[in-house]
């Protein structure tokens, strides 16, 4: 290995490194990331949609200068798609190409070799020469059987293939599992992980994030934007705006050259942050009116 691996020595290191990678980590986020690199334990990140769970894994990969291997989970995901698969077609071809005098045992040994194995994300991650960051996204979408299958990988970093034996990790990956908490994960899985709960950030923290991603936006506009987003999250919506949507909105405002968020501007750009028909009505009724009232009050004052 020629390049030196980045290995953080303190929580502040991680915090600064993530910031450089374009991710402003909260206190606990930085700490848990630091522990993950030190203890070689997977991290289970839970929280509402759009608070930067997936982004954390990406930023960690950038900061640690490692490749990101991503496994997107969905219902019905099985080991053939997550770990490895035998390349049937190639095996068939191999058997057909075999001359008839070759013995059965030769062929059998032959077609279950690594040559006929198609590695899927989990296998790729642990077989990689250089250490990687493995992101197992939305683990709560899979069924419990799949979770059970992950246990061996998460605690021992190895995969057992019946025909081939055990494959051990060559390098230790940093593993991030994310979950939207739509279903209770099993105790066994949780026990093997460090736990991190990500929530919508505090006002100041989100302001910083927005400013990092759209530095051109005026300070006052950015602050107002974050305040409005905070108010919208208080409402009972089908889908509250996420951090990513705050950033999108900031960029939209920047493009439009907005100097202020008034009722008119809000109405025009609202669809960037609110994405349901019924939600749009609610937000227009609650927040839009408030902005108008504020605009009316100002000339009078």
């Amino acid at each position: 290995m020629t390049e030196t691996m980045i290995s953080p020595t303190s929580v502040d290191d991680v915090s600064a490194g993530l910031r450089e990678a374009g991710y402003l980590a909260g206190e606990s986020t930085a700490l848990v990331s630091f522990l993950a690199t030190k203890l070689d334990k997977p991290v289970l990140v839970e929280g509402p949609a759009g608070v930067g769970k997936t982004e954390l894994a990406k930023a960690l990969a950038r900061y640690l200068d490692r490749r990101l291997v991503r496994l997107q989970c969905y219902e019905g995901l099985d080991e053939a798609k997550a770990m490895y698969e035998w390349n049937y077609r190639k095996q068939l071809l191999r058997i057909q190409a075999e001359s008839s005098d070759a013995g059965w045992s030769d062929v059998q040994e032959d077609i279950f070799g690594e040559e006929f194995l198609l590695p899927r994300p989990l296998m790729t991650a642990i077989a990689s020469e250089l250490p990687v960051v493995l992101l197992i996204d939305e683990i709560d979408k899979t069924d419990q059987e799949f979770e059970a299958m992950l246990l061996e990988l998460l605690s021992e970093f190895q995969i057992s293939i019946p025909e081939l034996g055990r494959i051990d990790a060559r390098t230790q990956p940093v593993v991030i599992l994310t979950s939207n908490n739509t279903r209770e994960l099993t105790e066994a899985l949780k026990r093997r992980c460090l736990y991190l709960w990500l929530d919508y950030p505090e006002l100041e923290h989100e302001l910083e994030i927005v400013r990092l991603h759209s530095p051109g936006l005026q300070e006052s506009v950015a602050r107002k934007l974050v305040e409005i987003v905070g108010q919208i999250r208080e409402l009972d919506l089908k889908k509250p705006p996420s951090i990513a949507e705050s950033i999108d909105w900031a960029r939209a405002l920047l493009l439009l050259g907005a100097n202020e968020i008034d009722a008119e501007m809000f109405r025009q750009t609202m669809s960037v942050i609110v994405k349901h028909r019924t939600d749009l009505d609610t937000v227009a009724a609650r927040i839009g009116v408030k902005l108008e009232a504020a605009a009316d009050a100002r000339p009078a004052a």
Binding site: S28, E46, R191, Y195
Partner: peptide, 8 residues
């Protein structure tokens, strides 16, 4: 908390 408390 990260090691002991594993749900909200």
């Amino acid at each position: 908390a990260a090691t002991l408390a594993k749900s909200p």
